[in-house]
């Protein structure tokens, strides 16, 4: 049976892992390659590395890191952050990334999704969406969640799918860093509207939150950062818990 995936996310700035609370106030959480290896050994199903370095020099550092991850880690990994061209995707895939994730650049220029999908296959193209619930409507945000757009979550996710996205990575900005659980209602809306996998992100603080994302939100995968980085939820323990709850996970 196809397993629900547990995905630690590593935000990388200047070669080190960071995790913000509501996207500000970074706390350091260690070396990205070592962390990836530790998660892989504990049973993580995939890894996501997000480059949050703004500078051009930082971009080369990140490509070097992608190569080191590919050499050191034996599970699939996605990279994202500041990707806005097919050439950049080509460089990252050649460095050993399995998938790439695009966010603001896809909202700015939706054709980017189809360009990536037609050149490399739709399975490499993860479209990440940061959204916030404003007066009952889930509104997509750009620039790390700081700037609202005119787009609504489900409508944009469907368009992304139709343009060739292989997966949707949905982060609730309202839930991110707050540790009160994933946005299960919005996840379920995505599940009902889409035929591609949905990755839940933002808000987990306890093992039950993962169970809810899978059972109530019908997510295909769940992503988290700080609960893993600071070992608040060990991945092996989380998997045993989900297995006991009859959720199919890779043991």
């Amino acid at each position: 049976m196809l397993a629900k995936r547990i995905i630690p996310c590593l935000d990388v700035k200047d070669g080190a892992t960071v995790k913000g609370v509501n996207f500000v106030n970074f706390r350091n959480a260690g070396d990205p390659v070592e962390l990836g290896q530790r998660y892989s050994a504990e049973g993580a199903d995939e890894l996501v590395y997000l480059d949050i370095t703004a500078s051009l020099e930082g971009r080369d550092t990140f490509i070097d890191l992608v190569r080191r991850v590919a050499q050191g880690v034996s599970i699939p990994f996605t990279v994202g952050g500041g990707i806005s061209s097919v050439e950049h995707v080509d460089t990252l895939l050649n460095a050993g990334a399995d998938k790439i994730s695009i966010n603001s650049s896809a909202l700015r220029r939706p054709e980017l999704i189809s360009e990536i999908a037609s050149r490399f296959g739709r399975q490499v193209c993860v479209v990440a969406i940061d959204a916030r619930c404003i007066e009952g409507e889930w509104i997509c945000h750009v620039k790390g969640g700081h700037e609202p757009t005119q787009r609504r979550l489900v409508e944009w996710a469907v368009e992304a799918q139709d343009r060739g996205a292989g997966e949707i990575l949905f982060t609730s900005m309202d839930h991110d860093g707050v540790k009160q659980g994933f946005a299960c209602d919005a996840l379920n809306q995505l599940h009902e509207a889409l035929s591609i996998p949905v990755i839940a992100s933002g808000g987990c603080g306890a093992m039950e939150h993962f169970k809810d994302a899978f059972e109530i939100g019908h997510a295909d995968a769940a992503l988290a950062a700080s609960v893993f980085h600071f070992n608040e939820i060990p991945i092996d323990e989380l998997k045993r818990y989900l297995h006991k709850c009859n959720i199919p996970v890779r043991m």
Partner: peptide
Amino acid sequence: DNSRCPECKVPHMGWNT
């Protein structure tokens, strides 16, 4: 052919037994 299983997403992506 996921007409036999509308819940099943294509591509088949992830870990399976």
